[in-house]
Amino acid sequence: MPIVEPVISVEMPSGEDVQIVRRRFQGSAGPGPRVAVVAGIRGDTPEGIRVAHELCAFLGQHEAALSGTVDVYPCCNPLAAHRGARRWPFFDVDLNRLFPGRQDGHPPDRVAWALSQEIADADQVIELRGAHPAFREAPQAHVRHRDGKAAELAMGANVAVVWARHPGPAANSTFAYQHPGTIVLEGGCGNRLTHGVGRDLREGLLHMLSMLGVVAEADLPFHWAALQRPQVVTDEEVVRVRTSRGGLFLPEGTPWQEIEAGQPLGSVVDPVTGAACEEVVSPVSGRLLAVREQPVVFPGSMVGRVVTT
């Protein structure tokens, strides 16, 4: 049985407690690494939370055969998840911009601090997300640029793409930058569950635990040879496609379909008359990594990401 413990309790003004919970699976098959699997840092990522729960179900059935420890944090922003919102309510802050947090700060700051402490001595950290609510995305793993060890492990994540990303301006305040070698898994459609994506990410997660020596290969409920072999890309190989007009974007593509340079990704129409304003085409040949699902766009809104081939 896993040990279920609160990492931190947040006392609400009205008196109740909100807990961030850790489910610890301690193997007895032999020594092994400690892996932290963290989901739901934003409240609009139910796909990651689902994968965390499916992982717990597997680990619960195979706990004695594990080598090492797997700590699963299935939902780190419960108040936001409660309302399907991205940010921690009331304070209206993005938990994924508060790391490493503050021990004496407001509740989301303290949660960020507690999570940072939790993962400090982990051997491997894996963050489970969902796609941005406006997009549908192919399953993908994000690692830091030039982190060869993480990229090598992420090759087993059963995703379409391993994206080695340069840090953006906000990188230092994100969860993924609190521990070297963190791998972020995401895909599907924001704020909902996507058929097939949860299974892909779950199998990729189990396979990585197998690669780390925590889960015995013989216990995997699939054969590793059936998993996807991802393409490794850097920022330069991921092209963002934007609209030049505002209106309603009507997409034509689906994630991971092949696309030629000049091929339409969709069109922008006037939201009142329906008249066509712009045909948005891919500037490069490749595959669609993300497609916009939320149709309202301003000039400059991103409507797709294309991985060049």
């Binding site: 991205r86 406006a134 906000a170 934007r242 301003f298 000039p299 400059g300 809104s301 991103m302």
Partner: peptide, 25 residues
């Protein structure tokens, strides 16, 4: 507080980008 369309804080978009998203522009 934020730009309502995509819920972005304009004050986090500097120095901005004339070809970027609405708040960057």
């Amino acid at each position: 507080k934020r730009w309502p369309f995509d819920d972005q804080d304009i004050n986090h978009a500097f120095p901005g980008d004339p070809a970027g998203t609405a708040v960057q522009r």
